[in-house]
Design a protein around this nucleic acid. Sequence first.
DNA 1: TGGGTCGTATTTTTT
DNA 2: ATACGACCCA
Length: 773
Amino acid sequence: MKNYLDELNEPQRLAAETTEGPLMVIAGAGSGKTRVLTYRIAHLIEKGVDPFNILSLTFTNKAAREMKERISAVIGASEAKSLWMGTFHSIFARILRVEATKLGYPSDFTIYDSQDAQSVMRKVIDELQLDKDIYKAKQVLHRISQFKNNLITVRAYQNTPELMEADAAAMKPRMGDIYRAYVDRCFKSGAMDFDDLLLRTNEVLTRFPEVLAKYQERFKYILVDEYQDTNHSQYLIVKALASRYENLCVVGDDAQSIYAFRGANIRNILSFQKDYADAKVIPLEQNYRSTKTIVGAANQVIAQNRDQLEKNVWTANEDGETIPVYRALSDADEARYVASQIFELQMTQHLKNDQIAILYRTNAQSRAIEEALRKRSLPYRVFGGTSFYQRKEIKDLVAYLRLLINQNDEEALLRVINYPVRGIGQTTINKLMIAADELQITVFQVLENIRQYAAKLGINAGTVNKLDEFMTMMKSFQVMLKSHDVYEVSMHVAKTTKLIGMLKEDDTPEGISRLENIQELLNSIQGYVEEQKQLDEGDPSLSGFLENVALSTDADNEDDDKNKISLMTVHLAKGLEFPAVFIVGLEENLFPSMMNLNTRQELEEERRLFYVALTRAEKFAHLTYSVSRFRWGKITDSEPSRFLEEIDDKYLDWKNLNVGLPINNSGLNTNLFDDYNDIPKFERKEKPAKNTETSSFIPKAKMKPVAEAKITNQANGEAVNLAADKIVVHDRFGRGKVISLEGEPGNVKATILFDNAGEKKLLLNFAKLKVIV
DNA sequence: TGGGTCGTATTTTTT
DNA sequence: ATACGACCCA
């Protein structure tokens, strides 16, 4: 082993060498936190600590894997193998496989992802005969998630009048009933949702002291990365496990806390010194990642936040280039600019694709960017979004597999019992569910004795046969699972159920891609089995694979061809770094998000998010915003983000401010040649006023008034000319009178005053209008 | 029972 | 615009 400690600076080295007792490392952005964690673990092992006794909790599977690789490189792969390193959810799922039976769960419990949870919730709301428009499944689940993350059980909820009053005030007085029904239903299905994995871990550690003692003894050294993003439930688990030896090292940066919406409690990091009186605190303030310009700009932004620990991130790196801020005319223009700048960077700086990232606030923004990159034949990869495992065809096959492992998994059963179609309709399913409820057993158990119940349930003989066939098929799979490996069984299931056959018949591009996805899933099962067989502690079982499926995200899957531009949300980019970073969509109501403008705390989280985004960049950062954007199916005007105004102009290079003004006289798409550097630069007159209310900051592109526009009259399908004062009828808004038209031929926006709906601006390309007069 | 059409929400971020 | 769920009809 090398003298790895020599590669660290003073505070880094101190953090790596302080192995005993509670330690908090406040690691500013780019300050070499992963390096410290890696060397700290290596150092522990070097000192003679058994890797078996080290628990390292990271925020993503990806971070865990990367760190494990780096540790392997320092101490050797065989030593690193027995380290427990992973996300809270995956580590504690693993522990619960052993311990959950104590709480009445099967050891092969299913993990419900958010889709499953929502489906369960919809059924619960339906069964309680509640209005689904008031009790929105997603919202209700979010509320329940809050309860669970704060260890408020159903009983605790019902003993807490404040909570019940709050829900009643929010027009949801039945929240408690829903909570109970949801929990019951998951329990009956032998399933845990994401929050349960933490909640039940807490429960088992609290109720069974011998279990707690076992893991305290095992995990003598605990490291937690991204501590600022732990929620209360995670905090309690760490506290309980560490309370015996107190060899707890937490690493985090309050300025990068971006998961409050998910229950992350920034107070966990702010009050670490209160929890552990003899805690050492080591700040890492030197940034090794970014240029002075980027660090300076980021510091200015984050300084606007009130809630933060004192710290001073600095860098000895070069000044670097000023940060271009491009004002786009539309989302398409923004995307084109980004693509052209990437091209430029590759030409002048010789950057490779994988050194470039494009970051956005919402997944929906990737679409326009993708289009522009494709046009320039730039290879890219989109992280996140609808992940592989959430695709319908994948969930279908996985549901069969889940059902093999846990027959009580009602979500899985209901998903596949009539898919592919085998003549078992909703009526039959309802009967089965009612029977299961009355008999206090699961639907699967009803099916096992269907002939016994059929008459009582009024299910006719033909349907009984179909149900029987389904059960026989499932049983045959189960038998096969005992003697064959997981890949063979999965392949057999996919064929026998006709899932594959059905997709083969579909020769649309979507159908083909679905089939490919199924193939990819089967491949990944095979890969998983082979990989696990190689490991000492490997688990090549089906339940092992399914756990992986439930807890892994898209970002965790490796791509063979790595030389691609990365597209992802800012959240996903946390912990990563790139030589060049584009942050797009810097507009009010988008970044910061419209949903987070209500309180100072919410806005500060958005600001931290921007801070995270900016500090991903090593050498080149580009910022863009657009004066208009396609959102919710229509063009929306937007203002530049307030975060841009918080950065001193000395760091920024404003671009394209004059284009698209009336003087250009050309509406949208001014730049025909993508040559942004030739656009004459106009001096900006003054720094934009804080709290802009006026549009004086940067004028919006004005649409040119037009006298008339051709549209297809929905009344008779004929082309007619639309002009001011015409009377039209719209499906949704009813009768109205055209006030004015603006834009350019082929892209005209009409202002129409509707009798009942008021004044609306409609794009004639999309609006369906009947012309009356 | 199954397939089709219609209407509505969707765009905040994730384990 | 799109995708999903609800509803209706054959």
